[in-house]
Nucleic acid binder design. Sequence first.
DNA 1: AAAAGTTAATTGCAATTGCAACTACTATTT
DNA 2: AAATAGTAGTTGCAATTGCAATTAACTTTT
Lengths: 151, 151
Amino acid sequence: MMSPETDPKIRAWGLLLATHTALVERIELALANADLPALAWYDVLWELEQAPERKLRMHDLAQRIVLSRSNLTRLADRLETAGLLQREACPNDRRGNFLLITDAGRAMRKKIWPVYRAQIVALFSNQIDDKQATVMGDGFASILGALNADE
Amino acid sequence: MMSPETDPKIRAWGLLLATHTALVERIELALANADLPALAWYDVLWELEQAPERKLRMHDLAQRIVLSRSNLTRLADRLETAGLLQREACPNDRRGNFLLITDAGRAMRKKIWPVYRAQIVALFSNQIDDKQATVMGDGFASILGALNADE
DNA sequence: AAAAGTTAATTGCAATTGCAACTACTATTT
DNA sequence: AAATAGTAGTTGCAATTGCAATTAACTTTT
């Protein structure tokens, strides 16, 4: 499934890839079937909703959701067109823009979540126990920590 | 990072997404820097190399690597143009095509692997221990098993 | 064995993505 | 304070992707 080796870590990586692809495909399908926007939109809405003041600098958001800047420009365009967020000029730095989630944006996030959550539960949560989940979560957290540490 | 909840499983899912995106971005970068083709090409080459006779029906391959069929048609076009695989008519089913990895394809896979592997080790393997890896791997395997079971 | 239904692969087209400029501004150096 | 370097965001363009429709061949039903 991956390589000419049987290292448990290599195995885990290969299965991580396969799991990710398969679950994301299913989740996107469920969202589309419910006439809801894609996962990427949810991520943006969620980050903005979490942020202090419900707004974030674009480049800041781009980093959090690991998206290229150009990509975020256009993703933001779409969300803005849909009325789910607004651009707002940044007073300190005239190059910059904040993205600010609108009420419609918050409502949309709330509407997406149960559908998304149901998929996570059915496909992911129900197949593992809390202990496994914790081990996984901790492992991912170390990996992400190391990644952000070295640069 | 994900939702208004603190269930360890929901947390794990969110971290899985973040980890996946970040690592794939890094790996693709490393491959591009080494003038090597992308991960998707590796997957195709690997599956073909593993397969009995070193060939696979397209729709069979599409399922394994979770890729839409139309997508695979064009991915195969590119690999074929690059001389890494060949299409071969299927004797039983005249609709079908086998994809057959060429010697150049095998050589390319061998060339990609050390670069890919180095990234997996640095970014993933080095951050977790064998026990964690095994728990993760088993968890992913159950999830994938459940997915394939229900349909 | 003809008709209706499936499946394999491809294609056209629209949407998304990524990369490399480009513009506008801020920060640093001299 | 001028010159240089760096950063934020956008845009053009080419490559990739996904969806729906198409073609060709196989399978099941009647």
